[in-house]
Write a protein that binds this DNA or RNA. Structure first.
Lengths: 232, 232
DNA sequence: TCAATAGTGTCTCTAAGACACTATAAG
DNA sequence: CTTATAGTGTCTTAGAGACACTATTGA
C-alpha cells in the first residue's frame, strides 16, 4: 500500500529546434502569481491527468500540444525527483525531449495563453530557471548531444526537404564543433536514410541537391562515434 | 495544481548478476494474498516514501537493500506508466537496473521475509510476471546489452579480482554471442581501466593473470561498437 | 573574372575481426 | 605425451579525419 504521501508528479519537456543556425529551446514564463516560482522561465510541463492520459507518452504529448501545435518527435530522457526541487514538497518529474522541425517554428509557439518563447540554448542555460529546470535542460541537451554523435536523430530537426550542407550545420550546431565535410557525407550516405527529391536548391552559389527522409525511417545507429574536426 | 488524482508511484529494480556463466535476475514472489497479482513473480520494487527518501536514487537504493545486502551499481532506465498496468488504477514505475558483483551473490538475496530467487535470464523471460514486469525486465535487459556493446559497464558484475577470460565470458553472456579473444583484450587494454594484481589464477591449465578495477573507475565509453564474431 | 558553396578523390590512421601461432599449467 | 586455457603476432577491413581538388552557380 502507498506510503504516507504520494509525490506530486509532472511531465516536463525540453523542446528543441534549430533556428538561424543555432539550437533553440522552448521556455514558458510562469504567469500565475499564486503559483510557485512566479515570473521565472521554465520548461513546458504539466500534471499527468489520470482521467485523460492513457499512458506517460500520451501525457507528454498532451502537455506538448498545449504549448505548440507542431508535429514533433518525443523521447523520454529520464525521471528526476526529490524532496527539495519544489518548495511544495516531494516532486517527481518525467523529462522528455522533443525535436521540432524547422518549418514548424514559423507557426510559433503557444496555443494557450501563457507567455512562451524560443531561446537560443546558450541564452537558456544562462537563465535562472524555475525549480530544478536548469538541471533538466542540461540532461536533455546532453542526451541530444550524445545521440547526435552516434545516431541520425538530428534529421528530425530538419524541414521536409533539405540539403546535406544544411544537415551538417545542424549537426555542428548540436555538437558545438565543426565537422569534416567528406566524412559527414560518407556517413550519411552509408546510412541510406535519405532520398534525393530530384530537386536542387538555388541559393546564390552552386545549387545543392535537396533530400528528404526516406519513408519508413525510424532511426539509425552508426557503429562509430562522430568525433569531428581536430580529433587526430 | 494537481489533477483530479495522482498516479501511484513505485520504484522497480532489475538486479542482474552472473552466475555459472549465465546472466541472472532477481525476482520476488508476491506473497500477500490481499495484494494484486498474488503468487506471481515480480521485479523487486516498492513505493517512494516521501518521509524517508530524499530523492529517487535513494528510494531505489532503499528498495534494493531491502532485498539484497550487496554492494551494487544502480542506474535509472526510465519510467513506465499507464492506466492499465495495474488493476488498481494509474501506476507509474521508475525502473532501475542494478549490477551485482559475482561474489555478493554467495550471500544470497533476502533481508526481508518475502521469497526471492535468482533466475537465469531466459527462465525469467519465459515466466508470466506480475503487472507489466515482463516489459520492464525486457527494457532493463536491452539497456544492459546496448551498454555492453559500447561501454565497460560489465566490469561491475565482476568479483574483486578476475581474469580477462572471465570478463570476456561475462561480455559474451550478456551479448549472447561469442567474441574474438584478441579484439576483446586489445579493447580492454586500450581502455586502461584495469590493473594487474600481481597474482595468477591457477585453474588446471595455464595460469591467468588476475586483474582488478583501477581505483577511481567511473565508467568508460568506447567509440566503436563491439560486434563480435561473425561480423565480417 | 571572382566569391561562395557543392561535391569528389584519395591518403592516412585507428581499431575491430580473423586466425594461426606460442606459452604454461595439470594429468 | 595430451588437453586446456592464456596470451601474442600480424594480416585484412571498415570507416573516420585531412585536405586538396573539381564543379556550378550569381554577381
Amino acid at each position: 500500500m502507498p506510503g504516507p504521501q504520494m509525490p506530486t508528479l509532472t511531465v516536463d519537456i525540453s523542446v528543441f529546434t534549430v533556428q538561424d543556425d543555432a539550437l533553440h529551446v522552448l521556455l514558458v514564463k510562469r504567469s500565475n502569481p499564486n503559483t510557485a516560482e512566479y515570473g521565472k522561465w521554465a520548461l513546458p510541463g504539466g500534471y499527468i491527468l489520470t482521467d485523460k492520459d492513457q499512458n506517460l507518452d500520451e501525457a507528454a504529448y498532451r502537455v506538448l500540444t498545449e504549448k505548440t501545435q507542431a508535429k514533433v518527435f518525443l523521447e523520454q530522457v529520464g525521471s528526476f525527483g526529490n524532496a527539495d526541487r519544489d518548495p511544495r514538497g516531494w516532486f517527481l518529474s518525467v523529462l522528455y525531449f522533443a525535436l521540432e522541425k524547422q518549418t514548424d517554428i514559423k507557426a510559433g509557439p503557444g496555443r494557450d495563453t501563457s507567455e512562451s518563447r524560443w531561446f537560443a540554448i546558450d541564452e537558456a542555460r544562462a537563465l535562472d530557471l524555475a525549480f530544478d529546470h536548469e538541471q533538466l535542460l542540461q540532461a536533455a541537451f546532453e542526451r541530444l548531444q550524445n545521440k547526435t554523435a552516434y545516431t541520425a536523430l538530428p534529421v528530425r530537426l530538419m524541414p521536409e526537404t533539405f540539403t546535406l550542407g544544411e544537415l551538417q550545420k545542424v549537426y555542428e550546431t548540436i555538437m558545438e564543433k565543426p565537422l569534416e565535410k567528406k566524412s559527414f557525407r560518407r556517413r550519411i550516405e552509408g546510412a541510406d536514410i535519405l532520398e534525393y527529391t530530384g530537386q536542387q536548391q538555388h541559393a546564390g552559389s552552386r545549387p545543392a541537391s535537396l533530400y528528404r527522409i526516406k519513408p519508413g525511417f525510424t532511426g539509425y545507429t552508426f557503429n562509430r562515434l562522430l568525433e569531428g574536426k581536430g580529433t587526430r
